[in-house]
């Protein structure tokens, strides 16, 4: 599948301004420097509410994966399969996303990935991941 169409709300405005520019914005604590997920409002390391938004490098490792099997289409073709993953960004935070690949069945924990952005018409740019050229780091 591809990504869904969604609109921003006040909590996600800065994040989607970032994805529109091709940046994946995560949080960095102004007090202790700890990186946290885009939706964090309180630093998990020190409790500070002073969190900046900074661009992530955009690279990470698959921490867990699942293949979501959709319903077969009415014309009898194969059921769509989506590789839904948890990516552990190199800065530390986890992101739930999907890997865009022709071979979702081959996605495994530990594979290296890099962020990309899907830009559906009428919706916000959504971060997705693609397997890095050196995906199998093991």
């Amino acid at each position: 599948m591809t990504v869904g169409i969604m609109q921003r709300d006040p909590a996600t405005t800065e994040f989607f301004d970032g994805t529109a520019r091709g940046e994946l914005l995560i949080r960095r604590c102004a007090d202790c420097g700890h990186h946290s997920a885009p939706r964090c409002e309180t630093c998990p390391a020190c409790g500070s509410a002073a969190l900046d938004r900074v661009p992530a490098k955009g690279t990470g490792t698959i921490a867990s994966w699942t293949l979501v099997h959709g319903r077969p289409p009415r014309d009898g073709g194969p059921a769509p399969v989506t590789a839904v993953v948890v990516v552990e960004l190199d800065e530390g935070p986890w992101l739930h996303s999907q890997v865009i690949t022709d071979a979702p069945q081959e996605v495994r924990t530990g594979f290296r990935v890099a962020v990309d952005f899907e830009r559906p018409e009428g919706g916000e740019a959504i971060p997705v991941f693609r397997l890095a050229p050196d995906a199998v780091s093991a």
Partner: peptide
């Protein structure tokens, strides 16, 4: 859903099944 939860859905996390599957896989 708030905006962030909508982002999960837009990213392909269609409800509890994939969320728990990610936990089980770990």
């Amino acid at each position: 859903f708030t905006g962030w939860q909508l982002l999960d859905f837009a990213s392909g996390l269609s409800g509890a099944n994939p969320m728990y599957a990610l936990a089980a896989r770990r």
